[in-house]
Design a protein around this nucleic acid. Structure first.
Lengths: 152, 152
DNA sequence: CAGGATCCCTTTCGATACTG
DNA sequence: CAGTATCGAAAGGGATCCTG
């Protein structure tokens, strides 16, 4: 955060402009100096990308899209996630309103996690991205082999 | 990777099944035992998610979608990225065939980076995700306020 | 059962200095 | 200009132990 930024903003189309503005921490480098710097709590793109990009959130969401799960069942389903990370990931997802948490005061207690409507909606564009990724797999692997082959 | 996995696979629909299979390192916990364990080089979803989720790749792709950029111009546009991370990110994107790199043997040398067709195609589902994120921003922030308000 | 707290190792990434 | 090399701080994340 210490580097200097020359003021040479270029013309970006509206979509990319918005995307960059909400995404970049230092978007002032890309826009007029008087534009307000979006703080991190104000950046939905970084928020969403952080969830999508982290190790477990997406896997949890997809698992919950099948049906609601209790904590332990969720851990078994996801596979090799630790209780620590499962708890932590669920808290973030719950805080963002993507997952609901319902406690049943039985003995011993049971807690059921489920997708909210917002969580289900989130999976729509995510699924599209995953589909693209699956489709582009061959191309990516081919490019990778070419790259590694020359001057490896 | 040391935890044990009971063999209680559940029924998942085909899409989620594929997503989970390519995504989860321990997908054997979710599928039949005889299913081949996808190695990491064979997992396009993790690959793509790693690019989408990391700190700079997406910003670089969006910047390049405007027009090809030289190294220094790209660094200025992105904002507060270090040369180290810019180089590293570009190498990964180039290796995956999303970005092309062309060297002009001038003095001093100049290098131009541009999106490939694959890179442009990748931005389509990514843009959809970003659009959703922008649209869901208010809902997410509202949920967050509610969560933080109660028992903060 | 559903976590919280703690420890510690690994990876990530920024800063800095140097090179063809 | 376009990188490479090295270092250290910070974050991510697993293992383990403890609790209502």
């Amino acid at each position: 955060m210490t580097r200097e930024h020359p003021s040479n903003p270029v013309v970006l189309d509206a979509t990319a402009r918005q995307v960059l503005q909400v995404f970049s921490e230092k978007s002032t480098a890309l826009f007029a100096p008087e534009a307000p710097v979006p703080d991190m709590d104000n950046c939905p793109v970084r928020d969403v990308l952080a969830r999508v990009g982290d190790k477990w959130s997406l896997l949890i969401l997809v698992t919950l899209s099948q049906k609601p799960h209790r904590f332990s069942a969720l851990q078994r389903q996801v596979g090799d996630i630790s209780k620590r990370m499962l708890t932590q990931s669920l808290r973030m997802l719950e805080r963002d309103g993507l997952v609901s948490r319902q406690v049943f005061p039985t003995k011993p207690p049971s807690v059921e996690y489920a997708l909210t409507a917002l969580g289900e909606a989130a999976l729509v564009p995510v699924a599209a991205l995953l589909d693209w990724a699956a489709g582009a797999h061959d191309d990516i692997r081919a490019a990778r082999r070419r790259y590694d082959a020359e001057a490896g």
